[in-house]
Design a protein around this nucleic acid. Structure first.
Lengths: 330, 330
DNA sequence: TTGTAGGCGTTATCAC
DNA sequence: GTGATAACGCCTACAA
């Protein structure tokens, strides 16, 4: 039994295909009686429109593509959550394309792929500007950047500089030495994330404003083991009491563990400020900067949806600021 | 500048659209000279066929949908890797649909979504059988299961029972007590993963065969902190020397750390066997079971591709067995 | 308010 | 071998 088409529905409802299409897309004028007849036919036949045909006919496929780097972190999970929430409300489907490496990115941008054929595109954490510059990427498609900024497209991004500044201002309220741990990310240029540079810049601006100096900086990676090693090194070299800005909760976690092992009192001997507010942060009493990631995703989706709904106008940028949550680690 | 269509290519090459279509799908008879002319036009115009139109015209869209639960773990990243590798070779695009919850699964299976309109479907970790039973899901579409088993479709799955057994057999070669840590997963029924049950069953079958008994079992979750706590509890209660089967590397990692903190010698006081062979496992000398996840993905894709190429015949099942990698932790 | 017809980009089936 | 041309399922004028 073939899948029913719009024709079948029209016949069953005793109307023309145009009418069916109209009720399908709630296009203004359709008499209530006929609308119901059509709806009934649709449900009787268990009809669902073919998205490919829709798309081909110049309509919408009700699918949007989300391009993002690794999907393996808490951050992206939350981001997806926000994005999907908004899209789902608008009855859009989401297809995700993890761009593990640059090759994949180019492939997807190769413009024949489905990713590039959806109604809209969400690009997370990419420097689109650079991309458009390097390659003549076609951008006829409504696009929104999330967790990234460019001045020629809609975008929603996190103000990491402000986050770093907040951490810095808070750190300067304490006496003792101030240390910081940053993350070195070694990704391809397009994938380069400047979040840690930004957090660092913000942090230093606060220290400077308060006339304070940093006693030491450490570089870690996102590997738990490396983080632990770096934490150990810091604790070996540090003077106590001190305050440490661990620019990612993962680093803070390793630091807390290492501190406890050494019998240090977290919150007094050593005050620790994280960044991210991971799910476990509250339970473990970590003072950290909460990022409204879901909200950022939701907003990004909303920006795209408004374009899809016909919104014209200059690019809009929505900035989200992390919020300090003070807990027992300070 | 509009995206070039097959018409544009035909015009540019001075041939008919039929011919272009033929070279696009390497349909037999096309004179070498014209083929090259067409190819040149294609590359000049930077033309790429529209997958929607292809699909609509009864052809292939050259995209396949991958439905999987969270995309957030190492396991799925590797799986995608294998999947995409194979599909890419066959010039298929891959669209990924993460099914965070059951609702989404049903939605996607609702058959109107793009996800369900690709040339083929890869379902990861789902119990399709149950699904088909509960709901009358249309399955006209070539489907392959990966990391799951059903007797009515092609599938590629990991033999976790065998993996557990291997771990068990290896554990019984050591003297001293034997302990194990399992993972409790609390997901919806369809999403229920039985991997840990299977590993446990295999493990016990080996112990039984060797006439050995387990001295203690512990339950953890995938949360690092919980794993650490459980590890601590185990180490507090255990008799040394002992051998511990940590049924996931993440658990083994926590155990190693906790053991080191307590001054225990990993490899002698306590021998630790993991499961997964995470990237860091080698560096940290963890004896573990390596799962050929990429291979499994690749094979699953191959099964689907063969169906897409017209292969008939009964459902095929490909079993993959984890491999023990002995390192310094034992 | 509603039906009809043309067009979207491809593939497939014809003749030539 | 190759070029028209009819589908494919839908949307959007346009006409009624």
């Amino acid at each position: 039994m073939r899948k029913p088409t719009i024709q079948d529905v029209a016949k069953a409802a005793g109307v023309g295909v145009g009418t069916v299409s109209r009720v399908l897309n709630n296009h203004a004028a359709v008499k209530e009686a006929t609308r119901e007849a059509v709806l009934k036919a649709i449900s009787d036949l268990d009809y669902t429109p073919n998205p490919h045909a829709r798309r081909i006919a110049g309509g919408k496929s009700y699918t949007i593509s989300v391009l993002l780097p690794v999907v393996t972190t808490e951050f992206y999970v939350r981001l997806l959550d926000g994005l999907e929430h908004a899209f789902q409300e608008a009855r859009y489907d989401v297809a995700i394309f993890p761009l593990l490496d640059r090759l994949r990115l180019e492939r997807y941008l190769g413009s024949h792929t489905l990713a590039y054929q959806a109604d809209g595109l969400v690009m997370a954490s990419y420097n689109l500007t650079a991309l458009f510059h390097e390659r003549h990427v076609r951008s006829e498609q409504p696009t929104v950047l999330v967790d990234a900024y460019a001045d020629n497209v809609d975008c929603a991004y996190m103000d990491n500089t402000a986050g770093g500044k907040i951490a810095g201002e808070y750190a300067t309220t304490f006496a003792g030495q101030i240390y910081a741990i940053w993350v070195e990310t070694e990704l391809d240029q397009i994938f380069t994330t400047r979040v840690f540079d930004e957090r660092r810049a913000g942090f230093f601006s606060a220290l400077t404003a308060a006339g304070r100096q940093i006693a030491g900086e450490y570089i870690s990676s996102f590997d738990t083991h490396v983080a632990r090693t770096v934490a150990a090194q810091l604790l070996t070299e540090a003077e106590f009491p001190c305050t440490v800005f661990a620019s990612a909760d993962l680093l803070a976690s390793a630091l807390i563990e290492e501190a406890e092992v050494r019998g240090l009192k977290v919150g007094s001997d050593i005050k620790i400020i994280g960044f991210d507010d991971q799910p476990w942060a509250e339970r473990r009493g970590l003072t950290t900067l909460h990022q409204p990631v879901e909200s950022m995703g939701y907003e990004a989706a909303s920006l795209l949806l408004s374009r899809l709904a016909g919104h014209q106008g200059p690019p809009r940028a929505r900035k989200f600021t992390p919020k300090l949550l003070v807990r027992s680690s300070t």
